[in-house]
């Protein structure tokens, strides 16, 4: 009997074995057979283990595989057994201002290549860093100067200043993101603003909107949002820019400008009307008929039937 169980590839037990391929684990929930346990312990344990391992291998060898240099890799499913973690889950990183904006606008993250194609050199060059493309004007030996340039105009210095400015701006934005993240992470501040908001709401939640309430000592006046207006007089260029921005917004972003709901739609069900008018033959047939009717005055088509 021992020999038989050793020979088989399939394992059949009263309670089917619980296999967890994710953790390479098999659990045999059948009660231990007391007789064989007492008879020969080592043989009993080995045959138990063999049956379990056979079942585990059966499930492992049916998993989908992926080729690799060291032979085929079996793709393991996620484990069924839940084991406690060793460390808490990582906290999500706070979003930068740009990331929040990109998420709101649906802008996809694009990985920019580190290298850039140089047409003159006919080669790939670094975008930044050593011999970077962003330092091309500073490093090339001759540079064009605009006609109306001052006598002391230095194109290299201008390009360098512009580059340094971009770097400084990026650093400034980074610092702002860091402080913003730190402020958001501070639970004390968050709670404080929360309480202040609740208090402000309760203070105007009486019948008189807080006008006849008892004032406490040291109670401050509620401050609303200060409205900001554009100055009445603006430079022409600013005004032009503002109107162009408005126009482009109207044109480009279809989602932002609210569409007028079709008033007709609610009153008249066009589809139903067409179906009724065409006696179920559809709009095309109706159109054909109408055209035919009009042309019948000219003495052509089947419009004369009516």
């Amino acid at each position: 009997m021992q020999r038989n169980s050793n020979q088989s590839v399939t394992v059949e037990k009263e309670t089917p074995l619980e296999v967890d391929p994710g953790y390479l684990t098999v659990t045999d929930l059948n009660p231990v057979d007391e007789e064989s346990y007492n008879e020969n312990l080592e043989a009993h344990l080995q045959s138990l283990a063999r049956d379990g391992v056979q079942a585990l291998y059966a499930s492992l060898f049916t998993l989908p595989t992926r080729p690799s240099p060291d032979g085929p890799l079996a793709q393991l499913p996620p484990p069924k057994t839940q084991l406690p973690r060793a460390k808490p889950l990582p906290k999500p990183k706070p979003q930068t201002k740009w990331e929040a904006f990109a998420a709101a606008k649906g802008i996809q993250h694009k990985v920019r290549d580190r290298r850039e194609w140089d047409e003159e050199k006919q080669d790939w060059v670094n975008r930044w860093g050593r011999n970077g493309k962003n330092k091309q004007i500073e490093e090339q030996w001759i540079t064009e100067v605009p006609l109306n340039a001052d006598a002391d105009y230095d194109p290299r210095k201008v390009a360098r200043d512009a580059r340094k400015e971009r770097v400084a701006k990026n650093e400034k934005k980074h610092a702002q993101n860091v402080t913003r993240a730190a402020a958001a992470a501070n639970p004390r501040d968050a709670r404080k603003t929360d309480i202040e908001k609740t208090l402000a709401t309760t203070r105007i939640s009486t019948a008189s909107m807080g006008k006849f309430d008892k004032k406490l000592d040291g109670e401050k006046k509620i401050r609303g949002v200060k409205r900001k207006f554009d100055p009445t007089e603006k430079s022409v260029s600013d005004e032009a820019k503002a109107s162009v921005a408005l126009l482009s917004r109207l044109e480009s972003d279809a989602k932002k400008t609210r569409r007028e709901p079709q008033a007709e739609e609610s009153v008249l069900n066009t589809r139903k009307a067409v179906r009724f008018a065409s006696k179920g033959r559809g709009g095309l047939a109706l159109g054909r008929e109408a055209a035919g009717g009009r042309s019948s005055r000219g003495g052509r088509g089947r419009g004369g039937k009516r």
Partner: peptide
């Protein structure tokens, strides 16, 4: 012995088994 979650494994690399069993209940 086995707490690590892996997404794929080389089957010829599985060489040994740790078997834990109990005496009759």
């Amino acid at each position: 012995f086995n707490g690590e979650v892996v997404d794929s494994i080389c089957l010829p690399g599985l060489e040994h088994v740790i078997s834990v069993s109990c005496a009759p209940t």
